[in-house]
Structures are given as structure tokens and as C-alpha cells.
Simulated assay, not measured.
Amino acid sequence: MFTTDESFRGGGEKICDCCGNPSQRTWTMVERDGRPYAVYFAACYDHGHERESWIDVVFGTWGEGDEYDDHLTFGCRFGPVVNSPLPAATAVDAAFVAPDGPLYGEKLSRTAALAHPRIADFWQVVDFVVECDPLVHEHHYGHRPQS
């Protein structure tokens, strides 16, 4: 069972480079069975005709010093897709707009992510984020998630 560490939650606003509209950002630690499991970063964009979120999930060892050797980052875009009335998640190159650094560890390409043994773990965290993160959920569904 996933939960979030709200003491770790952050966020902010940034102006989109492509359209000049503000984007909202959020991040926090995901815990599994009460233990640190992953960190996610989500950026929610409203380009007028479509709403989308870009979500990066970082897996690795947490809370044991500054060791990042095992960190691994997956990325996805959540939003409108062809031939569907509902938004969907699509794997993308991970954290491609974020600067390289030890926190992200190995940033997986879309191709590498889809073939990686932890892809199912990634999709579970993405489902949790879309369902439970207040900003991401409201951005796509127009209301806060139900508790």
C-alpha cells in the first residue's frame, strides 16, 4: 500500500517555455508499507486545448546517507491520447528537462524503460500519483481526490 510523506512535499509554479502559460509543480516521497519507496516530480500544464502532466519517478535507496548509486528514473506524459476520451500515461525519456545529477541516477529512455524489469513498479506509482496527488488529480479531473 502506498502513502506519501507530506513533510517532504514541495511545489511551485513555472512559466511554460512553449506557450507562456504557468505550469504547476509538485513532488513528494512515496512510501510503501511505511518505508521510503520512490520520489516523484509532476508538472501540470494547461495549453488551452489540452491538459497534460509530465511525471518522473525516481527509485532507489532513501534515507541512508547521500548514496545515489542505485537511483533509477522513469518518465511519462499523462494526458489526451489518440482515439480515447480519457487521458492515459505514455512512457517518455525520463527527466529530460531536469539537469543531470545524482538524485536522478540513471535516466531511462522510453525504450529502456519499457524493457526494464521495474516498469510495473513505475506504472503502479504513476497510477497512485494520478489517483491521489491533489494537484495532478484536480488538474485532470476537475476535483480533489476523495479521501
Rank of each mutant, 00 (worst) to 15 (best):
H71D: 06
H71I: 07
S53V: 07
A43I: 06
H137D: 02
E138M: 08
F128D: 02
M29K: 05
G142H: 01
T61W: 05
E64F: 08
A38F: 01
N83H: 15
G11P: 03
D127H: 12
G12M: 09
V125F: 14
F122W: 15
H137K: 06
A98S: 12
S109R: 06
L114V: 03
S147T: 07
V125Y: 11
E31P: 04
T111M: 09
V129P: 04
F128E: 01
P99S: 09
V97T: 11
A91N: 04
R144W: 06
P134D: 09
H143P: 04
G75M: 01
S84I: 10
R144F: 03
G142Q: 01
T73Y: 05
T73G: 10
C19P: 05
V97H: 08
A115C: 08
E52H: 13
V129G: 04
I119Q: 09
A115D: 12
F2N: 09
Q24L: 05
I55C: 10
R118L: 15
G105Y: 05
W123E: 14
E6R: 10
S23Y: 07
T61F: 08
G79I: 10
V57P: 06
G65A: 15
W27L: 06
W123R: 07
G48A: 03
A98P: 04
Q24E: 14
H143W: 04
G142N: 00
R51P: 05
A38H: 07
W62G: 12
D33L: 09
H47M: 08
R35S: 12
T90V: 09
F128H: 10
A112C: 08
E50G: 03
T111G: 07
G12H: 04
E52W: 00
T4P: 11
M1R: 04
D100K: 13
V82T: 08
A115H: 09
A95R: 05
R35N: 12
P36N: 04
A95Y: 00
P36K: 07
V57Q: 04
C44A: 14
K107N: 10
G65T: 13
T4F: 14
Y37Q: 02
P36C: 00
Y45F: 14
R51F: 03
S147I: 04
R32L: 15
F2I: 02
A42G: 12
T26K: 02
F8S: 11
E138W: 00
Q124G: 15
T111H: 06
E6Y: 11
N83R: 09
I119L: 11
P87R: 01
C76S: 13
L103Y: 09
A115W: 05
A38P: 05
K14V: 14
Q146A: 02
I15W: 10
D33G: 15
W62I: 00
G142W: 03
T26H: 04
P145N: 06
S84A: 14
F122K: 11
D133P: 10
N21E: 15
E31D: 12
R77V: 15
N83Q: 14
C16E: 09
V126Q: 00
H116A: 08
P145Q: 00
